[in-house]
Design a protein around this nucleic acid. Structure first.
Lengths: 104, 104
DNA sequence: ACATGCGTCACGTGACAGATTACGATCGAG
DNA sequence: CTCGATCGTAATCTGTCACGTGACGCATGT
């Protein structure tokens, strides 16, 4: 058995920007500018996303899902996985101090 | 058939603060202050959450899941549902302008 | 040579989670 | 009855972050 944490994630989950950069942009032959225009946001927004310099907002999830024909959850789940992984990491120490409450 | 949007949600999904207020606090006989102390955050943070004046952060999801013995996803999913619902609502008009791309 | 389009940088703005401090209310002990 | 402790909550400040705008360097094509 591998040593894993509760989520079963050893390393940081894939950032949604990576999916965009590695899969969606090439597959649909889209540029950063092109996608930005199609979604009605600035190039910066897409650029930062693709370079993983910001996280994917719920609004972006809606826009992307509308454009690519998938669900907002698809995008949001990817972002959540990253957020959760980061949160667990940064709270490791203080988490030890939180004692689970006995069942009601 | 009911008239629903794509997520099947007619009205705003339950805010995680409501779950806390209506279910968890009573069931475990916890006060706002008590929970705050147990989680290692300020009373304000819990109070605002319970009054649905702020949203549940990934870090809070981790703390709550640790304390109540459930998963962070449980809490995060609740928040996501609300966020998504709000996002769809506020983007309704501009969403119409986004034309789905033909499949690759 | 110049225009067009691309990715990227620098800057400003607004929104928001969180801590701190302070205030009024309630309640138990002396 | 008063004093202190505990509770919920309001006001304020701070740091972070998503987003837009404008400018820059670079490439390509006319």
């Amino acid at each position: 058995m591998e040593i894993e944490n509760k989520t079963g994630m050893r390393r940081r989950p894939t950032h949604p920007g990576e999916m965009l950069r590695e899969d969606f942009l090439p597959d649909y032959e889209l540029t950063v500018s092109g996608l930005a225009q199609a979604l009605g946001v600035s190039r910066q927004t897409i650029n930062d996303l693709v370079r993983e310099k910001r996280s994917l907002s719920p609004e972006m999830a809606v826009r992307l899902s509308r454009f690519f024909g998938n669900t907002p959850q698809f995008w949001l789940n990817a972002q959540n996985a990253v957020d959760l992984w980061d949160a667990k990491r940064s709270l490791e120490k203080e988490l030890a101090r939180i004692k689970p409450i006995p069942a009601a």
